[in-house]
Simulated assay, not measured.
Amino acid sequence: MSTSKVVLVTGVSSGIGRVTAEQFAAHGCVVFGTVRSLASAAPLPGITLVEMDVRDSDSVPRAIAEILSRAGRIDVLVNNAGVNMTGAVEETSIAEAQLLFETNVFGVMRTIQAVLPQMREQRSGRIVNVSSVLGFLPAPYMGLYSASKHAIEGLSESLDHEVRQFGIHVTLVAPAYARTSLEANSPVAKATLAAYDRERAAVAAAVARDINNAPSPHSVAATIVEAALGKWRMRKTPPGQATLLSRLRRFLPAAPVDASLRKQFGIG
């Protein structure tokens, strides 16, 4: 029987998820990657694609059961699938917020709840939840996305306490910007208000600039792989901007961090 780690990565159709799946395969892992539609998904050499929609409470356990029937176990779950959205909190409808949370928070819960029975039975496992620097350092006009990542931060820390007794650990990986289609094509809240136009535009310009200058997803993927296969730590940030922001948040007083953020986004 193979001793290779069996890894499940959600959201591998593009960006960070796709590169992460490739890097796990390069490490000799047996890798399954989820996509919402097999019919429209591009093949990923060395990775078995499985159809799964994290928003669908029937789709998730069905996909997990399929993986277990093929591989017999899941050693690592990487919750990467997510969506973004920009807009002032006042502009964002409850329906838009619910859709975002359905993927970013409840989708993560669905996959975790589906894999935990088997991980508990085998008395081992690693769950890696992809958060964001916005999970500890909120940004203007990304309030609901930040809120969803704050939720994942709290959920992950609580979960890790609960599952250590079964030999399972949870890790958070918090990247900054990477050049991906998710970040470059974030939807905007539909019912925009003119009162926010000037600052919203300034923030959008700053974000576009940062994405254009951001590294490729490869360093984020490498951090995820290390978080999954290496020595356990509760939090990991990719090298560069994410690690710098984490240190600033931890060691600087709130006022200069706040002023620096506003200046960076062009609203200071």
Results as ranks from 00 to 15, higher is better:
L134N: 15
M1R: 09
R209W: 00
I74A: 01
S260T: 12
D258V: 06
A41N: 05
S37K: 13
S186K: 14
D75P: 13
E96S: 09
E226Q: 14
P45F: 11
P175Y: 06
G154Q: 04
V31M: 05
L172F: 06
G11N: 13
I211L: 00
G11S: 12
V50M: 05
T86V: 08
I47C: 08
V78A: 14
R55Q: 14
A176G: 12
I224H: 09
K231L: 09
A81I: 02
E226P: 00
K190M: 01
A259Y: 09
H218N: 01
L44H: 11
G154L: 06
Q122A: 02
Y145M: 05
M85A: 15
L172Y: 06
Y196P: 00
A26D: 13
T86M: 07
L99K: 15
V128Y: 03
S69V: 03
K149M: 06
G82H: 04
L244W: 14
E90F: 08
A26M: 10
I127Q: 07
V188R: 09
L172V: 08
G266K: 12
K263A: 13
R70T: 02
L159D: 10
Y141G: 05
S14G: 02
A206W: 00
T20L: 07
A65V: 01
G15F: 02
D197L: 06
L99M: 13
R198A: 11
V133Q: 07
N104T: 14
I112D: 08
V35Q: 07
M52S: 12
A222P: 02
I211W: 00
L38S: 11
T243G: 09
N79Y: 08
P61K: 10
F106K: 08
R233M: 14
V173L: 13
A208H: 00
E90I: 09
V128S: 06
A42I: 14
M52Y: 04
G15Y: 01
N84F: 15
V128L: 09
N185G: 02
C29D: 02
G15V: 01
H150D: 06
P253W: 09
E66D: 10
A41I: 05
L172Q: 07
A228G: 12
A184M: 10
E121W: 08
A176W: 12
H161M: 14
L38P: 11
V115F: 07
A259G: 07
M119P: 01
Q122S: 02
R235G: 08
P43L: 08
T243D: 11
V207P: 00
R18G: 08
S2V: 02
V130H: 04
M85R: 15
P117D: 11
V220E: 04
E96K: 10
D58H: 11
T171P: 11
V203C: 07
A25E: 06
E90A: 05
R70I: 04
A255S: 14
Q165E: 06
A189D: 03
L49A: 15
V54M: 15
E66C: 01
L155F: 12
R233L: 15
V7A: 04
V7F: 03
Q264L: 11
G33F: 01
H161Y: 13
E157D: 14
F136I: 13
L182F: 10
I112W: 06
L261R: 10
V6H: 05
A174L: 10
G268C: 06
E51L: 03
I16Y: 02
R123K: 15
L134H: 11
R70F: 01
F32A: 01
T86F: 05
A174F: 03
L252M: 15
Q122N: 01
D75F: 08
A95W: 05
A39V: 13
